[in-house]
Write a protein that binds this DNA or RNA. Structure first.
Lengths: 350, 350
DNA sequence: AATATTTACGCAATCCATTGCGTAGAAGTC
DNA sequence: GACTTCTACGCAATGGATTGCGTAAATATT
């Protein structure tokens, strides 16, 4: 029952002329008389004519559509990234095809392949934690289609990347813990398959090294991002003979899941254990105690990814030289790492 | 530099046959010899041939794409709705075009119009708070294209709706406050232009009426969803001579913004003022005090919206009879409305 | 007056897959 | 031998917009 869309042919028939004349009249081609142009344009605007985008896509092999694949958007981080992507895309006249991988490699492969079959002009992706193979991504690069990694990337795939500054974010967080007197700092790290777990771990280790605190393997545990794993991690840490006095968590979700366990154990935050996490949720200001966080530039990551895509579109040879943009993080110190009295007293160090 | 996609013509040329024979061979048409079918299919799978979706779209006027327009996804609710939509669409072999209106009517009109020009098979939308005119939506219905409202709707537009049970959610929240002894219950309501503000207000009023508590106009304030407005609302309420002892907020964002103001004023939650809000964030369990919430079936709203779309696709005459699905909400009682001691003592009433 | 140039338009191919129709040759029927 | 039927394929149109090329007619040039 769909009403057929208005076409050039309809206009041509109405005016007793040819399709090509109508087309050229609308594009202000020099070989069309002013009177004809007026007739065509009048009718087109009266009938609210718009060229059929599907026909244009077929003709130009251009879709004004960017594919986006993220693992989830239930947590705050990727939903803000999506807002950045949508705003930038919208401004540039592009549409966004939105897909979830749910951290499952097979689903990621499926959505990438269906997206790829010529409906999109480029792909922005945060690979799943399972993404160790990457034929489905190589395939995009081989086609010469713009591919932009956000937040996470596959080392072996030669494509542009827009990342948060995980290393320095982590470094400054741990240094903050050290400067506020913590001696035994643990790290609940992300999955080793995720590209951003490593720089966060390195930042942690280097901050310790700078302050001559020996790293202790017991204090580094890896979480696979499930709740069970998070609980397991914290239990291992608070089961140690020598308890940690500070913990850096890979993300906010882990922090939220483990902090109650620590509280129930009777340990006081921040007095006995300080917490810092990578996190973006504004609600964080309302939890008790408020979580000290490394804030990631989520919106800008999305925005910049679209810009990189647009640059790459514009430049034929761009694909040969992938770019990496690393956007600064920001440490916001709150009650989970420093007693609020101290906070109010202005203990905030640079 | 984009590699040209493989076409029927390529296969036909390789096998010295015609495009139509290749097409029919791939579709197992009866008029093609088994030998030819084998040759074609072998080559097609060797070359990993896939029909060009754009050409199919043009031919069939079908896109396997659903447009989705929501005001934002930074807050938890719509991002969960989006997850429901994406899962259901993915399962049905559909793609999702994702757009934000940012609560701005003009932007909503723009994205709807660009989506509409024949790239999508249907539209799922949560109208912006500014959406009082609706030509851009009528236009969809007139075309016979499936249109599904989620969470909010335009009264005058004859389209299907998938909504949370705002009325009963609100009613049970207010009744809970009454049953736990509150006498003077306020409501920070949503914008009057939003379709779900009204049933939430009605639920509030009817719960009061049922328990013979007179409604007091002073206790009903409308928030336009900006932070400034939320602060203004709470200031009006706590500036009253007779303070409210319970507050129902239109959404979680308002609750988070106003609870600190109440605390700063030295008022104790829940002892002096109880709070209940419509909200979904899992993090809510970590704020202090934990917010009693009416949980909306966000994921299911998204899922059901896609199902309604699919039904409507399947049935030619469906558009004539729009459906409304109202999905149940759930009241979860936490510390913001009842002292935790009481909670633990099992005060939870049915 | 004859040729060159400009004006103003239409035809047909292009992108790609699908499909109604036509047609060749082979096989079968009376 | 003349007819129908079946097999196996190709042609061309379809969907919609664009564009190179061709071609009338109307001016301009010499």
């Amino acid at each position: 029952m769909l009403y057929r869309q208005l076409t050039l042919k309809d206009i041509a028939k109405e005016l007793n002329t040819s399709v090509s004349t109508v087309s050229r009249a609308l594009k202000d081609h020099h070989s069309i008389s002013p009177e004809m142009k007026k007739k065509v344009n009048d009718l087109a605007s009266r009938w609210d004519y718009h060229p059929n985008p599907t026909a244009l896509s077929l003709l130009k092999n251009k879709h004004y559509t960017i594919g986006v694949v993220v693992p989830e958007i239930a947590q705050n981080y990727f939903s803000i990234v999506m807002e950045g992507i949508e705003d930038a895309a919208n401004q540039a006249g592009y549409h966004v095809m939105f897909c979830l991988s749910k951290e499952i490699l097979q689903r990621e492969i499926n959505v990438v392949n269906t997206l790829l079959n010529n409906r999109i002009d480029g792909l922005i992706i945060a690979p799943s934690k399972e993404t160790v193979s990457h034929e489905h991504l190589d395939c995009i690069v081989n086609r010469g289609m713009p591919l932009i990694f956000i937040d996470r990337y596959c080392e072996a795939v030669p494509a542009s990347r827009v990342l948060g500054d995980d290393y320095n974010g982590s470094f400054s967080a741990v240094e903050h813990l050290i400067l506020t007197g913590r001696k035994r700092i643990a790290h609940i790290a992300g999955p080793e398959t995720l590209s951003n777990s490593n720089p966060r771990l390195s930042g942690y280790l280097d901050a310790l090294k700078k302050h001559r605190i020996p790293a202790d393997k017991e204090l580094i545990v890896h979480c696979d991002l499930t709740q069970a794993s998070a609980i397991d991690c914290i239990n291992r840490l608070i089961g140690l003979k020598k308890l940690p006095d500070g913990i850096l968590t890979y993300n906010s979700s882990i922090a939220f899941q483990v902090m109650p366990v620590v509280k129930e154990k009777g340990l006081k935050i921040p007095e006995q254990i300080a917490f810092v996490g990578f996190a973006n949720e504004p609600i964080i200001s309302y939890i008790e105690p408020q979580l000290t966080t490394v804030i990631q530039p989520a919106y800008d990551i999305g925005w910049e990814a679209v810009n990189l895509f647009l640059d790459q579109q514009a430049d034929e040879d761009y694909a040969a030289t992938p770019k990496t943009k690393i956007l600064p993080t920001q440490l916001v110190i709150r009650g989970s790492s420093v007693k609020s009295s101290a906070l109010h007293a202005g203990l905030r160090h640079a």
